[in-house]
Amino acid sequence: MPSIPLLVCDDSSMVRKQLLRALPPEWAVSVTEVDNGKAGLEAIRNGLGKVVLLDLTMPVMDGYQVLNAVREEGLQSHIIVISADVQEEAVRRVLELGALAFLRKPFDPSEFRATLHKHGLLAVPQQDVAANAPQIDGPSSFRDALQETVNVAIGRAGAMLARVLDVFVQLPVPNVNLLEVGELHMALADVQRGDERLTAICQGYIGSGIAGEALLIFHDSEIADMATLLHRDGNDGGDLEMLLDLSTLLIGACLSGIAEQIDVVFSQSHPQILGEHLAIDELISVNSRRNQKTLAVEISYSLEGHDIHFDLLMLFSEDSVQLLNKKLAYLMN
């Protein structure tokens, strides 16, 4: 009997390797790997995804759009979603769109195999195990490992934010780069839309020699809507208190998610107002004390149904890169 066309659709090469390693050895599959939803949908249309392992947060086309297109086009595919977007609403939506199951990242190999058994996806006998064994490339890169670690962390932070605000949080693909100070200024400049004013909160952190600072940037035009969501008074003092509370929640949840995965305990300073009601060039001036390379993780949350964004930059010191590399080594191999 021919092998089953299995599609692994995830923008992280590291996660794709982990999934391939977790496949039951007795399962006869022919594997196709893609790194975005558009390529995944095309593979399903071409019969290469009778079984699909699907991420949600991807570039070009996300997992929700893939599920919707599969349903609308009547494509025959058994889809298991494996995602860091662990909001209750995310789980409800993917099951409503036709996914067989939802597994949270980082996925548990035993739960993964149990899910395959539960849905009868292993009930096809195999002719030749060796011939059908998927080929797995070499080690993952540091950037890919850190990006996926952050992806899991921001998914948990997003779920917490969704509960606090009672909204659906649209999660981004985190962007990881080693930046010179001038490039960091350009990254900050990308945050601004038009000539609007910004308010920024900063919070330092350190653990096991890994140190850095988080910058959470709010768009002043959106602060009143945030206050409405949180049922807060719209005065200046109340607004600043609200922003500090949101920063503590969001930055703390992201750091906690990262720390848990790399076995570090971060100590955090109190959040502080870096700048209030500033144009981006003024904010850059306030933040110009950095004169070395910075490992920057750029994250931009948005709230469905609201013109509200949370732009978060996690800035690790240059000295932290080697230590992070060691901590992430187990994921890269």
Rank of each mutant, 00 (worst) to 15 (best):
320 S>E: 12
256 S>T: 11
207 G>R: 06
257 G>L: 04
319 D>F: 09
222 E>H: 07
282 E>R: 14
293 K>T: 13
241 E>K: 04
262 I>S: 02
266 F>K: 02
239 D>E: 01
260 E>D: 14
274 L>V: 12
247 S>Q: 02
243 L>F: 00
292 Q>M: 07
289 R>T: 15
324 L>E: 05
258 I>A: 05
300 S>D: 14
294 T>M: 15
272 Q>M: 11
225 D>R: 06
323 L>D: 09
314 M>N: 06
225 D>L: 01
244 L>S: 01
218 F>W: 10
304 E>T: 14
294 T>Q: 14
265 V>H: 09
235 N>A: 07
208 S>L: 04
275 G>A: 06
317 S>C: 04
244 L>F: 04
222 E>A: 07
278 L>F: 14
262 I>V: 10
326 K>H: 10
314 M>W: 11
231 H>F: 07
242 M>T: 09
285 S>N: 09
238 G>H: 03
270 H>W: 06
268 Q>I: 08
295 L>D: 07
205 Y>E: 08
218 F>Y: 15
222 E>N: 01
239 D>F: 04
224 A>K: 09
262 I>L: 03
311 D>G: 02
261 Q>D: 08
246 L>T: 01
315 L>C: 11
303 L>N: 13
258 I>S: 01
229 L>G: 01
207 G>E: 05
244 L>P: 03
214 A>H: 00
291 N>V: 13
220 D>G: 01
323 L>K: 08
245 D>C: 02
209 G>T: 06
305 G>Q: 10
309 H>F: 13
207 G>S: 07
294 T>F: 10
280 I>D: 05
326 K>T: 06
279 A>M: 12
254 C>D: 00
280 I>P: 12
314 M>F: 10
308 I>Y: 12
267 S>L: 13
276 E>F: 08
267 S>Q: 15
224 A>H: 07
284 I>A: 09
270 H>A: 12
281 D>S: 14
242 M>C: 03
273 I>P: 01
325 N>Q: 06
228 T>F: 05
291 N>Y: 13
271 P>V: 02
272 Q>A: 10
240 L>F: 02
208 S>P: 00
284 I>P: 06
293 K>W: 10
238 G>L: 02
217 I>R: 08
224 A>R: 11
235 N>Y: 14
324 L>W: 08
305 G>V: 11
316 F>K: 05
282 E>H: 14
267 S>P: 00
